[in-house]
Structures are given as C-alpha cells and as structure tokens.
C-alpha cells in the first residue's frame, strides 16, 4: 500500500477539496451521540468521535428505496431512473469499512450483482480514520480493527500528523492537490507502530476472546441459554437497524390512490421481526424470540463465515448500546467463556 504523511492542520483542506466535487458525509455531534450526516463545512466534523449511533449502510442501502415504477393497468414497468450523487464518506472507522466490504461481497461481487447497490458503491469514495476502542468495541476479535481494503484513503493518526494509506487514483489526485503529502520518515513509521500498538492494547479485556465461536455456535445450538437470551427479546429490531452488516430487506408494492400507477420498493427488514420467516398460509419457521435471536447470532458468528470465510459481525458494539434487553454478541461470548471455565471450578 502506498502511503504518505500530511500534517493534522491539512485535514480541513482535504475535506474542502472533496466538497468541491462530492457530497461529503462525515461524523457529526448530534445530541449526546454522533451520527453520519452530510456536512456543509469541515468545522462540523467530529474527528474524535467514538462510534456513531447508526451505521453507514444507509448510504449504500437506503432504508427505503424505489426499485422500479409500473403501470398497474397494463402491468408494465415504466421508465424510472434513480439519481445518485457522487459521495465521499469521510472519517469511517476500520470496523465500518470492514462492514462495507462484507456488504460488497453480498451485493456487488456475487452471482447476482445488485444494480442499485453497485451504482451507489461505485459513486462513493471512502476515507477512513483510525480510532481508539470504546468499552463496547470488540472488532479486534474478528480481525476487523484494521481495514486492509475497501477505502480510497485511510488516515492514521500518528500525533499531530496523519500517515495516509492511499488506495485509489481518484483520491490520490485530490490529496495531492489539496495537501502537501510527504514521504514518511523513520520517526513517522515508529510513531505509526506505536499508535497501532496503543490501540491494540486498549481493548476492553473483560470481553472474552473466543476464537472458536463459530464451532461453539453449532455445538451449543440447543442449549437453554438461547431460551433465556431470546426470551427477553422485545422484537424491536433496533439491533438490525444500527448494525452495519444487517442487510436483510423486504420487497413491497405500493399503488397510487387511483390504483393506476405504482412502485416496487425495498425496505430494511430484520430476522428478529416476528413475521420474518413466515410463508404463505401462515406457517412460521421461527415463531418465537428464542429462535429468532439465535438465528441472528448464528448468522453473525457462524453462517456468514461458512460462506464468505469471515465473520459477519465486525464488533462495532452498536447493538450493545441499542438493545434494551441486553442481547448482543458479547453476552454470547460470555456464555461460552462460562462453559469453558466450568471444569476449572
């Protein structure tokens, strides 16, 4: 990876340069938390934000998106074009970039590339920014504390300056024009090593590191633990809404009041919602919370891994604060930790 160093003061110039040509989305302070939103000035950016309440996925998979419009009288699809502004996501943390990489695998790289997602993704530049873990962060457990690809630039804070990993020509040109990127010195390199080491040592040590969690999800699939954990699920699906890698959706039609025109759209859906696995005639394959919560955790900590060789969960910790019933992957890891220590007692 090509890298250069810029001074911290050059940061705003870089943002301004992007704003000349793109809509810029960045973390901003909103109430007690942070959100990703379109900015109108670099001053709005909360560079030292912890984790945003909701993830970036809304910019690639909008909560509600029209796929096509149709004439319901003669049952034909009508001309419809979705305009997507070229956009820069500025200041994404490594976990969120890794989350986008997972969405790319499902929506862009598979056997059926999704034209809507792909168009948004191709119109989006990602500028990453290094961070320090909060108490709820466990991205390091799933190897998601570092973004190896999926960004155009990545700004590593090395104290008063940034070591910038440069991935795309488009972003390199803007960096070159807006800042004075210089070749890294030995001091820059050792400060970079120091910074990554400090981050790696700062994770909450109380979150159990269970590397064989996928196999354990199979082994303990019928354990009473799931009754207890899923039994308290409120089916609010806040977990899925804030999760950067929950991508399930529903397809629905809507008609105009006179019934002649309509649209087919997709909306976010969640496997924790009670009707999610229902089929025609009313049979529900996951009728209670126990099965739904277990299924969601299974997909995050085993299912995706089986298909794509990486955890779907990126350990961002958003569901930890979003869930009012205290259901999250950390509780699952703690359960396995408990199981492992039973013999010691």
């Amino acid at each position: 990876m090509l890298y250069r160093v810029i001074d911290a003061e050059e940061r705003d110039a870089l943002v301004s340069a992007f704003m000349q040509e793109y809509e810029v989305v960045a973390p901003v302070k909103r109430g007690r938390g942070y959100v990703f939103d379109v900015i109108e000035s670099p001053d709005e950016i909360a560079y030292d934000y912890s984790t945003t309440t909701a993830s970036l996925k809304k910019y690639l998979l909008p909560p509600r998106e029209t796929l096509m419009t149709f004439n319901a009288v003669d049952n034909c699809i009508t001309e419809h074009a979705e305009c997507i502004p070229p956009r820069v996501i500025f200041g994404a943390h490594a976990c969120d970039i890794n989350a986008i990489n997972r969405l790319d695998q499902v929506f862009r790289d598979g056997r059926y590339p999704d034209p809507y997602y792909t168009a948004r993704r191709e119109a989006t530049l990602v500028v990453g920014m290094s961070c320090m873990p909060t108490d709820d962060c466990f991205c390091h457990l799933w190897d998601a504390d570092e973004a190896r690809f999926g960004y155009d630039l990545f700004l590593h804070d090395i104290g008063g300056r940034y070591l910038v990993s440069i991935s795309s020509v488009e972003a390199a040109n803007i960096l070159e024009a807006a800042c004075n990127p210089r070749v890294a010195t030995d001091e820059d390199r050792s400060d970079f090593r120091q910074a990554t080491r400090t981050r790696q040592l700062s994770f909450n040590q109380n979150i159990p590191d269970i590397q064989d969690v996928a196999m354990l999800m199979d082994a303990f699939h019928k354990d009473e633990f799931w009754d207890e954990l899923g039994g308290r699920c409120l089916s609010c699906s806040a977990c899925a809404a804030v999760c950067p890698t929950c991508f399930c959706f529903d397809l629905q039609d809507r008609l105009s009041p006179d019934g002649t025109q309509g649209e087919r759209y997709r909306v976010w859906d969640a496997c924790t919602s009670p009707q999610f696995a229902e089929v025609a005639g009313g049979h529900n394959f996951r009728p209670d919370g126990r099965e739904r919560v277990r299924h969601r955790m299974y997909h995050k900590l085993n299912g995706f891994l089986a298909n794509y060789d990486r955890m779907l969960c990126v350990g961002c910790g958003r569901c930890v604060s979003a869930c009012k019933a205290d259901i999250n992957p950390i509780r699952v890891l703690e359960f396995f930790e408990e199981k492992g220590s039973e013999h010691d007692a």
């Binding site: 000349q20 040509e21 809509e23 001309e79 419809h80 305009c83 997507i84 070229p86 809507y116 191709e122």
Partner: peptide, 12 residues
C-alpha cells in the same frame, strides 16, 4: 455545498 459534478443513474 456545490452541485455534484457527476450523477450516476440506475435505471431498471
């Protein structure tokens, strides 16, 4: 915010 330079379209 300036008007975006290019607009990408998805047309079903």
């Amino acid at each position: 915010l300036r008007e975006p330079a290019r607009v990408v379209e998805v047309n079903p």
